[in-house]
Design a protein around this nucleic acid. Structure first.
Length: 554
RNA sequence: GCGCCCAUGGCUCAGCUGGAUAGAGCGUCGGACUACGAAUCCGGAUGUCGCAGGUUCGAAUCCUGCUGGGCGCGCCA
């Protein structure tokens, strides 16, 4: 609908320019928005005020001129009003709103889906937690953000791949193997002192027990270095397997798990560094290799190969991103914890040295979750083993409530997650408000079937009965869905969906309480069935994108 | 010290990239079930959009400077 107004305005604008009524060199971008106040009609544009400054003319006069030039060939406009400093307010005819619903019914589960992605390959990389322990509640937020972003991009017509980067090549991995080694010895009856940096959670005890169950004390006889290497692989593999299962229970399924070790396997890191050195972005200082990130706006240059000859994490990350583009992704989205923000300029420098545009990389920052229990902060640390796992959250709060909760704030704002509150208040959780609206409609549909009522199939005649202001408001909300989708995808802001859903559910509940859908008047009932069914379709489509279920009964 | 993010009713947060009288939820006060489901609805109260300037027809939104909070500044990952 918005686009139709824009199109009408474009024609009017062009007409005015042809007639020499407008003289400025370039035509402005036309912006049309939904009005907040019904007194301002349905849509409004500030076009005349934008023109006013360019043309040096009175905005209200310009608005009048544009209004004269408008040719409403489709007959969708009830009236145009000029208001305030020069707004043009458009009121859409009621029948036109009602007719919009036919698109919802025609497209059903495709309603709101778009194709502007044009099949371009996009990769969303998220979670990417080191396999040193189970995922905890902090990872859960990133998991949902990444997953829903991927859903949104898919819905916009992109070819999306979900990827998990496994940082399995650093010192942390070695610590993991060593931690298991100490636990193992402890359980074999030796007295051990755990060095700093060890992972001490219960899951390590379980792993040690599994090793003992399989091999007994056989490892005690082996040389320590060899044991640690073997234990590292074993622990990382087992933990990663657990992570995959936890993610699956949370409704998150990756297309690809990419191992950092693979980057070293055929010397991709080394070859990449050589290439960058050739291009002049890498220089040597003694044994150390530096990347000239300052050439791309970073504060200082960064080391890519240490004095001891080992490449840094950063070096591997450049190689990793080079690899992403080599795999044909036109656009790469990384979802990171906000504590990594200082790393952003570095990575942008990296991809630009590879001749990629900064446009090809988008980093979405997710603020860490502030975990509370009864209002008091809970300290979390993977190493000490004190944390609430993703699995526990899913089991206790439920998948739907957990996912919806994480989607209720912009990803870059802090999020308090109170465990007791989430559990205790599960019945008052906003997710149920939305799901209840869906279940309610399903209930009406069941009742309608019993009475032998059917929503009209093409139904334009029958739909003329929908003319209450609550009905038009509901239709407006329903048909706004594609616009919400588009904005949400383009801004990479999935939280907009939950706010929209809340609005839509509120209108539905309000309408339900005020007006009976099913009555003695069959034609009226059927028209209203058509309306609530369209609400249901949109609720379902949006909830599906969030990975939240749509119960027919609750 | 330098950099990034944040500051909006009592609390938690939106505010569609500069629009008209700043909105929700929770909480609070008062109402609505012989009803298609009360996990719902209806109504009331609550604001110097951190402070001070600036940009313009117009600022919660953009710029500058303060104040207060979070995070980051490794040849860790």
């Amino acid at each position: 609908m918005k686009n139709r107004i824009v199109a009408i305005l474009e024609k009017a604008l062009a007409a005015c320019r042809r007639q020499g009524l407008l003289t400025a060199a370039e035509a402005p971008v036309i912006e049309v928005e939904l009005t907040k106040d019904p007194a301002h009609g349905d849509y409004a544009t500030n076009l005349a005020m934008i023109l006013a400054s360019r043309e040096k003319k009175n905005p209200r006069l310009l608005a009048g001129m544009l209004s004269e030039a408008i040719a409403d060939t489709e007959g969708i406009l009830e009236r145009i009003e000029i208001a305030g400093p020069g707004f043009m307010n458009f009121s859409i005819r009621t029948e036109v709103w009602v007719k919009e619903l036919t698109a919802v019914h025609a497209q059903r589960e495709r309603y709101g889906m778009m194709d502007f992605g044009r099949g371009k390959k996009v990769q969303v990389e998220f979670v990417s937690a080191n396999p040193t322990g189970p995922l905890h509640i902090g990872h859960a937020r990133g998991a949902v953000v990444g997953d829903v972003l991927a859903n949104l991009l898919t819905a916009a017509g992109y070819a999306v791949s979900r990827e998990y980067y496994i940082n399995d090549a650093g010192n942390q991995m070695r610590n993991l193997g060593r931690s298991l080694w100490y636990r193992y010895r402890e359980q074999m009856g030796q007295s051990v002192e755990f060095p700093d940096g060890c992972y001490r959670g219960d899951y390590m005890k379980d792993l040690a027990a599994r090793v003992i169950a399989a091999d007994g004390g056989a490892w005690l006889a082996s040389e320590e270095e060899a044991v640690i290497t073997a234990f590292t692989d074993y622990a990382a593999g087992a933990i990663l397997e657990g992570i995959k299962q936890d993610l699956q229970a949370f409704g998150v399924i990756f297309d690809c798990y990419f191992s950092e070790r693979d980057l070293y396997r055929d010397n991709r890191v080394g070859r990449l560094l050589a290439e960058l050195q050739e291009k002049g972005f890498v220089y040597r200082e003694g044994e150390t290799l530096w990347f000239k990130t300052t050439a791309f706006g970073d504060d200082k240059d960064r080391v890519v190969v240490r004095q001891n000859g080992e490449p840094t994490y950063f070096a591997a990350d450049i190689a990793y991103h080079a690899n992403k583009y080599q795999r044909g992704f036109d656009r790469v989205i990384d979802v990171w914890g906000a504590d990594h923000h200082g790393y952003i300029p570095r990575l942008y420098a990296g991809i630009q040295a590879l001749d990629r545009s900064p446009e090809d990389l988008k980093i979405v920052l997710v603020q860490l979750v502030n975990l509370l229990r009864d209002g008091k902060p809970v300290a979390m640390s993977t190493r000490s083993g004190e944390f609430v796992t993703l699995r526990e959250v899913v089991d206790e709060v439920g998948r739907d409530a957990a996912r919806y909760n994480f989607m209720m704030r912009r990803s870059d704002s802090h999020l308090d997650f109170d465990l007791e509150l989430a559990k205790k208040q599960s019945n008052e959780n906003p997710v149920y408000y939305v799901q209840y609206a869906h279940a309610r409609i399903c209930s009406i549909l069941r009742m309608a079937q019993e009475r032998g009522y059917r929503a009209p199939t093409d139904g334009e005649a029958a739909l003329r009965r929908l003319k209450l202001s609550e009905e038009i408001d509901l239709i407006k909300a329903v048909t706004r869905f594609p616009e919400v989708m588009e904005g949400s995808v383009k801004a990479l802001e999935p939280h907009r969906l939950t706010f929209y859903l809340n609005d839509l559910a509120a209108l539905l509940h309000s309408y339900y309480n005020k007006n009976k859908v099913l009555s003695e008047d069959q034609a009226m009932s059927e028209a209203r069935l058509y309306l609530v069914e369209s609400v249901r379709i949109v609720l379902q489509n949006a909830l599906k994108l969030l990975g939240v279920s749509t119960p027919e009964r609750m």
